[in-house]
């Protein structure tokens, strides 16, 4: 078996999620090559070559891939992926965008968002927002898979010494072009990979009050998230959303503040190691999944939490 892993990156550094995809590849077994597609992405290729268990790094460095447009990436991966038994990408917005397109071009099914590998053609994935877990078996010659990074402990990013090869495949489908992007600037860790996440819900009442959570987050080195209710209410931007329709997180510690615990939110954080819930409604469903629950008014509890943490950290 031979596996091609699509590297997720920003043209300067490899995303942590790729190391989790490599762990999924390792669980499948076989030779693992990594495809780095981007523009001026040489540093990413060097990083990928150091990751554990990588046989070869293939680099497609061209302006056509600079903004990760799905149309161009799909044409590239459909060609570069020929001969591989498995093609894997992380289930971030880049992988979710281009991978189904590759599947259609190759006339194979895609297995989305796997959280475990049973064997080389059988995989476990959540359905119904994580309220059911399906085991599915593929009969296609090429298995096209997106990987939920929280399901796999990342392989080491150091110690490997894979060869790096340039791929001379330039695919510009001419269907789409990049216009602009607005990326949130933040010094806090990325939600998807943070060891600690503190999230606020509708109980926060407005966006300004999220500053309270940010203070606690800065003490803990935590990422700041939000429930869909808080996003829908316009308190905070959508890229902070944790849940079925937002980001899936599984940190060591998840602190849910003023979040009732709708199914759709639980689907996004239910795999966290330790869950803390702070809510004034003692009937809130979030308490059923919390390891530590505190029934309290968050506007009193969060400043207290900040003070108590200052004492012990």
């Amino acid at each position: 078996m031979s596996i091609l892993v699509f590297a997720e990156h920003d043209n300067s550094s490899l995303k942590q999620a790729t190391l989790s995809v490599l762990a999924a590849a390792k669980a499948i077994g076989g030779d693992v090559d990594v495809l780095v597609a981007g523009e001026n992405c040489g540093a990413v290729a060097e990083q990928a070559a150091k990751a554990e268990g990588v046989n070869k790094v293939l680099v497609a460095d061209n302006a056509a891939y600079g903004h990760f447009l799905g149309e161009n990436l799909a044409d590239l991966v459909a060609e570069a992926g020929k001969g591989y038994s498995h093609i894997l990408a992380s289930a971030g917005t880049v992988g979710k965008d281009f991978m189904p397109r590759v599947a259609a071009l190759l006339d194979v099914a895609q297995i989305s968002d796997i959280m475990a590998v049973v064997d080389s053609d059988t995989f476990v994935r959540p359905i119904y927002a994580g309220n059911a877990i399906a085991t599915v078996k593929s009969s296609d010659s090429t298995k096209l898979i997106t990987v939920r990074s929280t399901g796999f402990d990342p392989v080491s990013g150091e110690g490997g010494s894979a060869s790096v090869e340039n791929l001379d495949i330039v695919k510009d489908a001419g269907l789409s072009s990049f216009v602009s992007e607005q990326l949130a600037e933040s010094d806090r860790p990325d939600l998807a990979t943070a060891d600690i996440v503190i999230s606020g819900g509708r109980g926060m009442q407005n966006g300004e009050n999220f500053k309270m959570l940010e203070k606690v987050a800065d003490l803990l080195g935590a990422g700041v998230g939000a429930s869909r209710a808080a996003v829908d209410a316009g308190f905070v931007p959508n890229d902070m959303q944790v849940g079925q329709t937002g980001k899936i997180v599984a940190p060591q510690l998840y602190i849910a503040v003023g979040i009732s615990g709708a199914i759709q939110h639980l689907a996004g954080m239910g795999d966290s190691k330790v869950i803390v819930a702070i809510n004034k409604d003692e009937e809130a469903p979030i308490f059923q999944v919390a390891d530590y629950g505190l029934v309290a008014d968050l506007f009193e509890a969060i400043p207290q939490l900040e003070e108590e943490l200052k004492k012990v950290l």
């Binding site: 971030g92 917005t93 880049v94 990049f178 607005q182």
Partner: peptide
């Protein structure tokens, strides 16, 4: 998209 918005 992850991290914000992108216009194409």
């Amino acid at each position: 998209v992850d991290g914000g918005l992108m216009t194409v």
